[in-house]
């Protein structure tokens, strides 16, 4: 019964259909062609991460792994835009073997996640869920300046289970160089039946199949 009801349960986000269909149930995440990296800080401000991903060390690490395009969603963060050319809401820079784009916000990041071969992100739980449910390799960098830093707990717990790589600002180049995306554990798909069963039980709905009247 729970199986059939599961199919009636789309997620709240527009990602729901992809969540259900694109996630391989038990196969490891396949090695991507390593082309495109997407960096996101969500709706927050995380100057240190944005600054770090644009610096020489991280760019060198990305190049060494074959990444050739870098897109940074910087939210409310400050960054040094002097070396960029601004076109509308987008800052661009082209180097020998890498093109870089920086912008602040888009209504949905789903498309960006789908296009990326690697995602580097703040450790917000929403971003983590969205990215892991797409089966994409993810490096998270908890924002250590947050007062109540439970982001770090989540990042470390999920790294302990093998679902992602947790890094710090200073270790980020090393994390990029040593990430083995094939060794990341697939993240389980959304299971709506758990809360449904809990609520049905609490509200007195018995699970018996014969009581439909």
């Amino acid at each position: 019964m729970s199986e059939s009801l599961d199919s009636l349960a789309p997620g709240s986000a527009p990602s729901a259909s992809q969540v259900q269909s694109s996630f391989p149930s038990s196969t490891p995440i396949s090695t991507p062609p390593r082309i495109h990296v997407f960096v996101t800080v969500g709706s927050t401000r995380f100057d240190a991460l944005v600054h770090r991903v644009l610096d020489n060390d991280v760019r060198a690490a990305l190049r060494a792994r074959g990444y050739s395009t870098l897109v940074v969603q910087c939210g409310n963060s400050d960054f040094d835009a002097r070396s960029f050319t601004q076109e509308g809401d987008i800052w661009r820079r082209t180097e020998d073997d890498m093109t870089i784009q920086v912008w602040r916000f888009k209504p949905s990041l789903q498309e960006e996640y789908e296009r990326a071969d690697l995602i580097i992100s703040h450790a917000g739980s929403g971003t983590i869920l969205d990215v892991l449910r797409l089966g994409k390799p993810l490096i998270v960098v908890p924002n250590e300046t947050l007062l109540d830093n439970h982001q770090e707990e989540l990042a470390n717990a999920l790294e302990g289970l093998g679902h992602l790589r947790a890094s710090t600002i200073s270790d980020l180049p090393q994390a990029i160089r040593t990430l083995e995306s094939t060794k990341l554990m697939p993240f389980p798909p959304f299971n709506g039946s758990r809360f449904r069963e809990l609520l049905d039980e609490e509200m007195g709905f018995t699970a018996g199949p014969g009581d439909r009247s």
Binding site: G204, F205, D211
Partner: peptide, 30 residues
């Protein structure tokens, strides 16, 4: 309750991640 009974429900959407999680919980319900 019987299988066909109704149950009225309210949910508080606390913005941001709270809203996303609350709506995801609801998405699994009949």
């Amino acid at each position: 309750r019987r299988h066909s009974d109704h149950c009225s429900l309210a949910v508080f959407l606390g913005s941001g991640g709270h809203t996303s999680e609350a709506l995801l919980l609801l998405s699994g319900l009949d």
